[in-house]
Design a protein around this nucleic acid. Structure first.
Lengths: 229, 229
DNA sequence: ACAAAAGTGTTTGTTGTACACCCATGC
DNA sequence: GCATGGGTGTACAACAAACACTTTTGT
């Protein structure tokens, strides 16, 4: 069975740049390609769009099929359409970026035996297609957006300490922040709530846990509030 | 002649939200559709992607064919891919937004006799497809981006007065700005250069003309400068 | 008792905001 | 000479930045 069209059409794919954070680094999830072109090379998870599904749905489906990840924060990044970005034919890809927290999302082996693995952001291997370029655009977007949208919480567990939060910003923005000023600023926003819980199993004074209060944030936004680092 | 593919493919288009500024308003360029679906309705300029051309090239080609506009500032906006956004079949569109200055770009009659006309941003007719949604996203983007990127100059003539510049920001951000503070801020950035010229043909004291200095701006950006309203 | 990170205020400098009058030009 | 927008400075408030020590807990 084949599909016929009066005019030629580029192929359409969705690719995902999945960011995760652990104690050490900001990491990116890559899969090892099983087939040509670029068989054996590492690449962004992604695949061809089906007719009748939105490209966000494509991205989520491929992410789930290739890595087992579901229900993650996902936003459209950019559409890459240079005719020569795929050696086979003209393939337009709509790129998305996802944020997950590594402690709550285990990556499963892909169903089709492809490898999936996390790589530190500054230790990325050569990638297939123009995926290095896509990754670069995604990292720039993340760096920019994290300063004026409260998306960083997606990289942390539901309950987190202020130090974890600060470390997250430091890792992504790639610079150190002053502890007292950071706490002052973030607490004054009144969008994260103090819990009646503290850390456990740490070899020093246990820190208080906090949780992002999305309801309060949305309310404040409606009243003109602007999140900013 | 027809093109056959093993799997069905969505169609691909590019659409443009073209913003222009005149003395009164922020305006948007629309074309009146000649064919079904939505024959007679106003819509964003745009059309189908050809294999082998990037979608930005598609956008520029269609803009030129339908409105005569060339060499305009154009940036990718967002990709809209809901399967039901076109009643014919699944059509994915990559939307762009363009900024032109109305005094230097005259819009020509479309070659295929479609009407093209400017509409004030708060007096837009019902549009074809999901173009109202696209326009809304574009306007939001413009409002946000103009505050931290010096793209507003694209809406003004090459040489402009500080009052024109201020009016431009006021029209787009939809709020008034203080004249003295505005001038202080923009001049302190040292990215617009004072010219040895003044306005002509005005019925009051003629204002000094200025020009955006892109070289100086790029240099300052390299040194860590950040434009902000 | 020591190691390790938690937690906490004040001072200083910079930037934003509010505000009103005189000036130059064309008619 | 009058109407129209052009052009300018200062005072106060708010926010950002720099900075060091005490507290709690586990080993």
């Amino acid at each position: 069975m084949a599909f016929k069209y009066k005019y030629a059409r580029p192929a359409l794919t969705a690719d995902c740049v999945v960011f995760g954070l652990d104690e050490e680094d900001l990491k990116v999830l890559l899969i090892q390609r099983g087939m040509d072109p670029f068989a054996g090379k590492w690449a962004l998870p992604g695949g061809f769009a089906m007719v009748g599904e939105s490209l966000e749905a494509t991205a989520r489906r491929e992410l789930s099929e290739e890595t087992g990840l579901k229900n993650v924060f996902l936003e459209q990044l950019y559409t890459f359409s240079e005719p020569d970005r795929d050696p086979r034919e003209h393939v337009v890809t709509v790129a998305y970026y996802a944020l997950v927290n590594l402690s709550e999302h285990r990556v499963q082996a892909a169903t089709d035996a492809r490898n999936a693995a996390w790589f530190a952001i500054d230790d990325i291997p050569k990638l297939a297609f123009d995926h290095e370029k896509i990754l670069k655009v995604a990292y720039e977007r993340l760096k920019g957006k994290i300063r004026y949208q409260p998306i960083g919480f997606e990289l942390l567990p539901d309950k987190f300490t202020l130090s974890q939060l600060q470390r997250m910003y430091e890792k992504i923005l790639d610079r150190e922040l002053d502890k007292r000023n950071f706490r002052k600023k973030i607490l004054n926003m009144e969008i994260i709530g103090e819990l009646d819980e503290i850390e456990t199993d740490v070899a020093h004074r246990a820190a208080r846990l906090y949780r992002f209060n999305k309801k309060k944030y949305d309310k404040k936004v409606n009243e003109g509030f602007n999140f900013e680092l």
